[in-house]
Each structure stands twice: as structure tokens, then as C-alpha cells.
Design a protein around this nucleic acid. Structure first.
Lengths: 175, 175
DNA sequence: CAGGCCATGTAAGACGTTACATGATTTT
DNA sequence: AAAATCATGTAACGTCTTACATGGCCTG
């Protein structure tokens, strides 16, 4: 469901081919909903079969340019306003936390430090991504990627929280 | 993979039936890795077939009591120390944020307020869960559910962050 | 004309969701 | 005797991962 929506969402900004979408996708929504090339191409076929998008041109190398249809836009708005049927939150990293008692305390502490470092590296990666997207310009709520930047800000805060949490749990473990 | 580990992890604390596990599961790991009854039962069969757990008793109503094996413990430790092959982070809620530009600003702002309220409700739910688990006693790093409580603390911080973030994005939208 | 990029697709298998199916035992 | 709880399982369907397969176009 979600990948289908991601594809529709990208096409809502204008016509594109699967290949174009994939490129754009990796810099934006793939950060919150990763997907592979195979998956995206097959979703595009399903969307076209369902009439939510349509092929408006065929270029060199069999390139198919897709465009969102009115039905597609309707489906997109329906989904955006229906948060109740989202798939649930899942985190293997937190599941691991539950099981940290199975390894020696020193190793558990070390794992927590690694988690903190990983979050800090993510913060650097996301900061760079933000800089590459904004490239110095100012932006406000009418900006076309205002919400993409808001999602990015979420990622920054999430990782900051995670690093602090991991260090605080590690500290409790020392005692 | 992860559900299999969750089941093994619960069995590492002592023998139990699928039914027992399900009950315990819902109060602990299901918060970070939800699963259905069907899925848990079939994982137990697969684990038993693979020799990671074994049936040590059959009780009334066909109740099967499982116990973790040495191979099972080894697998558990292997997984706990291998964070590199975790499934990636996914959030439909954040994907929705990317698409909030598709609905009128007022509705988007209202959605963000709902997100904040949802997080605040989660904070209350998790606080109650914590109280029911600790029931007033003090705990330290030698406590058997120290790490479960650490995961719970993560949930509290995550939701606090989320509520603040949602309100801050909503505020930028006013301007 | 070789190498890199453009461009799309298939197939097998693991994992997850939903709904249904079945029946024994204990409690009221 | 009915209702609640205990207890396990099957089947269909959709999603995600991994690996593989294919070939056209453009640049040097």
C-alpha cells in the first residue's frame, strides 16, 4: 500500500518514468519507506492496470512516461486523510534492546555506544542531505518541499533523541 | 526473522506454551514488533522443526510446552550481536508528511495537531504500562526487565519528540 | 566499439495480515 | 447448561527481498 502511495505522490508533482521516479525517490521518500527497483516497477504496472496512472509517452529504450490520473489523485487524498489504516510501528533495533540481557554487561554497554554513534552519523548524513536540498535558499510553508524538509527535521530529532537515550541507558549500566 | 527472535527471546526466560507466549508478548515485545496469533504459532512450529526449540510436555487441550535448546540460545546471541542485517526503518506516518502539501493548509495543520495528540495519548498508555510493570518497586541494571523498561523509556522519549515536532511544524504552517 | 548509463522486467521465497476453523476445559 | 477462556491450526492473499535477465542508447 505505502509504496504505491509513494509512487503516486511523486507522480503528483509531474509526469516521469520509472527510472526518473527511482532517482527522485532515493533522495526523498526512500528515507522513510525504502523500496527496491523491482518493487517500484511492478507497482507502476499495477497502478497503470488500476487506472490510477497512465502512460502518456513511450521514448527511447522502451522508456514509459507516466502521468497521474484524476482517480489517482483522489486515491492519494483519500490515503493522506486516512491515517487509521497505517501499518504498525516496527523496530528490530528496539527488539534487540529487550534481549540485551542475554549478553555480558560490557558488551551490552558497547552495543549502546555503537547505537549512539550510528545515530550521530545519521545526523551528519541528514544534515548534508538537507544542505544539498536547500542549498542556502530560505524556505517557508509555501515551498514545494516544505513537508519533505519537515520529515527530514523529524529524522534529525529522532536520531538526536536516540543518541541521548542510548548514552543514558549505557550510563545506568555502569552503575 | 525478527518475530522468530522475539519468540526465542521469550522462551529464553523459561519454558512456555504458544498461548503463554502470546500473553507475555502483548505486554512486551509486541510494542516494538507486533505479530498476530497465527504468525506466532507458525513460527513456533518452524523453530521446533529447525531444532531451536523443543516440545518438553503436552498438556490438556493439546497444550504444547516449549523449551529453548542450546542451538536456539546460540542463534539468539548471534542475532543480538548482528545489528547490521536488521530490516530498514519504515514509517507510513512520515510518508504521509511528505504528501501533506496535497491537502489544504488548514487540514494539514489539523492533521499535525492530531499527530501530537496521538503521541500524547501514547505517552499516557506507556506510562501506565510502566507503572503496571514496576508497581512501585525500585529497579537497577541487574533487574530482569531492565532492558524492557529501557525500551519503554525509548517509547516515551520518541512520543515526546514526535509531539513537539508536530506542534512545531504546525506552527510554521500558521505563518 | 567498449563501457557506462538508461530502462524495464521476471521469479522464488520469506514475511505479514486477515479470516476462518476446531475443539477441550473451566467458570458461573 | 451456557459462556468464557484455553489452545492450536489452515488458507488465501498481499508485500518485500534477492537475484537474475535483457537490451538499447550515448560518449569517448
Amino acid at each position: 500500500m505505502s509504496l504505491r502511495i509513494a509512487a503516486l505522490g511523486l507522480l503528483a508533482e509531474g509526469p516521469a518514468s520509472g527510472y526518473d521516479l527511482l532517482k527522485h525517490f532515493e533522495k526523498s521518500m526512500a528515507n522513510v519507506w525504502p523500496a527496491t527497483q523491482s518493487q517500484l516497477y511492478s507497482e507502476l504496472n499495477k497502478l497503470a492496470a488500476g487506472g490510477l496512472i497512465e502512460v502518456i509517452a513511450v521514448g527511447p529504450r522502451g522508456r514509459k512516461e507516466y502521468q497521474i490520473t484524476a482517480d489517482g489523485r483522489a486515491e492519494l487524498v483519500r490515503w493522506v486523510t486516512s491515517p487509521q489504516d497505517d501499518p504498525p510501528f516496527r523496530s528490530a533495533a528496539l527488539l534487540r534492546v529487550f534481549l540485551l540481557g542475554l549478553i555480558p554487561t560490557g558488551e551490552a554497554r558497547s552495543h549502546l555506544h555503537h547505537m549512539a554513534e550510528h545515530s550521530e552519523a545519521e545526523i551528519r548524513r541528514l544534515s548534508e542531505l538537507r544542505d544539498s536540498l536547500t542549498c542556502g535558499r530560505v524556505f517557508d510553508s509555501s515551498d514545494e518541499d516544505f513537508f519533505g524538509l519537515a520529515a527530514l527535521e523529524y529524522g534529525l530529532r529522532l536520531n538526536a533523541m536516540q543518541a541521548q537515550w542510548a548514552r543514558s541507558v549505557a550510563d545506568q549500566l555502569e552503575a
